[in-house]
Design a protein around this nucleic acid. Structure first.
Lengths: 167, 167
DNA sequence: AGCATATGATTGACACGTCAACTATCGGAG
DNA sequence: CTCCGATAGTTGACGTGTCAATCATATGCT
């Protein structure tokens, strides 16, 4: 196996740094703009998007965590902050008394609705419009390749690879 | 100008999400691994790298902030934490009494030295090795295009570009 | 020299993330 | 039914980031 050794070459490292810095900067600009234009953070947006798409605007906390790929603890902290701002509400789950249902409030729904357009517009301006059609396609393939190459996050319960957000 | 309107198409949005998620996940894995293997965060690594490359292992705080592209306040907080851990030291600047020189300590130098190999190895495994040669080159071009398309962060000192900061 | 303003850096408040510890319920083996 | 391990979720501690305010020194203008 030619698997072990070898470090990145100078050029590979240059590309890595450029990649790291650009994606970081892009993310930061997008987050700042979202915050400024809508008062929401990227985290808020992710949560509100998932809830908006859910039937009844309601999801079990774990299910929500799985959909946006967050640790439960992170979600718990974030929901506490969002609940204070009245964007979501937590209710006891009918079928499992350990569980919590997360419910979108009217305030939250409206905040998300109002954020959609400016956010997507920013995505177009800062990401889509920055790239040629070929580059955009390549970006998709690169992202998929990177993700596929990541170590498995160790499956839960049933030891399958990634059960993905199931059902 | 066909400049204004239009939101991303479904496909553009799909690519954006894939891109965002993959780069986020990659960054997280890399950070976790660095922390686990060397006890350093990505921020620590960036600071130590910059200081290691500086003459005398010493930089003015502002200069350091500029090199790693951090806000001064962020740097100040981070340096406070690193100073507690004895990775760096702050000294008064000889030529400007407002200023601070940041100096690499022997502990910091050694920590960085020890972190280099594992970190670069992880970069190769998780980034370089995930991509074909063509994809790697494309990633570099995409990163450059994204960066070039970002709004200028308002020039400092010599007034080029946008003077922003009012009056 | 005298003063307005810019600059270098720090601080405090608060949002965000991770980790490990904890509580409580669920569900299956006996 | 009882007990035990897995599962759902929360919490506390602490590192990390941003913003706005603050402080002191430096500088340019008159």
């Amino acid at each position: 196996m030619a698997g072990a050794r070898r470090l990145p070459t100078r050029e590979e490292l240059r590309i890595w740094r450029e990649f790291l810095e650009s994606t970081t900067a892009l993310r930061t600009v997008l987050a700042t703009r979202l915050q400024r234009d809508t008062g929401l953070s990227m985290g808020d947006y992710a949560v509100l998007l998932a809830l908006s798409e859910a039937p009844q605007h309601r999801l079990r906390a774990s299910e929500l965590a799985a959909r946006i790929d967050w640790e439960r603890s992170r979600l718990s902290h974030h929901l506490a902050r969002m609940e204070r701002r009245n964007l979501i509400r937590r209710e006891e789950c009918a079928t499992d008394s350990r569980g919590a249902d997360v419910v979108l409030t009217p305030t939250g729904a409206e905040a998300f609705r109002a954020a959609t357009y400016p956010h997507l517009k920013a995505v177009r301006e800062l990401f889509v419009d920055a790239l040629t059609a070929e580059q955009l396609a390549a970006a998709g393939e690169i992202a998929a390749a990177l993700r596929a190459h990541l170590p498995q996050p160790a499956a839960r319960g049933t030891s399958r690879g990634r059960t993905e957000t199931a059902t």
